[in-house]
């Protein structure tokens, strides 16, 4: 018989529609990539980002908030952001915490647009096995 102990905590919230909830949305709030150290993994259209507005001119910034870990830079994750056809190459994400507290300008456009984001993850061979995480942040200016 396995010795174990169990406890539970309730998580709750009262959710209301967001008046600006459709202005900038993603189809997913998290993406999980399984990879082996020393390899590169490409996830086509890992998630989408949609700007949903009639405004004719806006700017979309993106970036990672932080590295995965001290030995696992966020720049090892690259994105290829496109509407219909992938760009020729993927671009490493800016890392807000490393790159002077700024984001990268991703798009200049207007009206409603939906972008597919391909992710290319290169895991350094020195990264120990484990679970790592970071947040991709998108900001719309209009």
């Amino acid at each position: 018989m396995v010795a174990q102990s169990q406890q539970a905590v309730r998580v709750e919230a009262s959710v209301a529609p967001n008046p600006l909830g459709t202005l900038l949305v993603s189809n997913l709030t998290s993406v999980t990539i399984n990879a082996t150290a020393g390899t590169t993994v490409v996830v086509p259209c890992a998630y989408t980002v949609t700007v949903n507005t009639a405004i004719t001119y806006w700017l979309l910034d993106d970036g990672l908030y932080s590295d995965f870990a001290a030995v696992f830079p966020g720049a090892d994750l690259a994105n290829n952001t496109y509407i219909s056809a992938p760009q020729p190459t993927a671009t490493p994400f800016f890392v807000y915490s490393d790159d002077g507290g700024r984001w990268a300008l991703r798009e200049k456009s207007g009206g409603k647009q939906t972008y597919c984001v391909d992710l290319t993850l290169t895991v350094p061979v020195s990264v120990p096995g484990g679970t790592y995480s970071t947040n991709a942040v998108y900001t719309l200016y209009y």
Partner: peptide
């Protein structure tokens, strides 16, 4: 909470289990 979530009071229990 995803943008498409409907209005209301939500909950979930998170269960922790410790095994020697």
């Amino acid at each position: 909470v995803p943008a498409a979530a409907t209005s209301g009071n939500y909950f979930v229990w998170i269960v922790y289990t410790v095994v020697a």
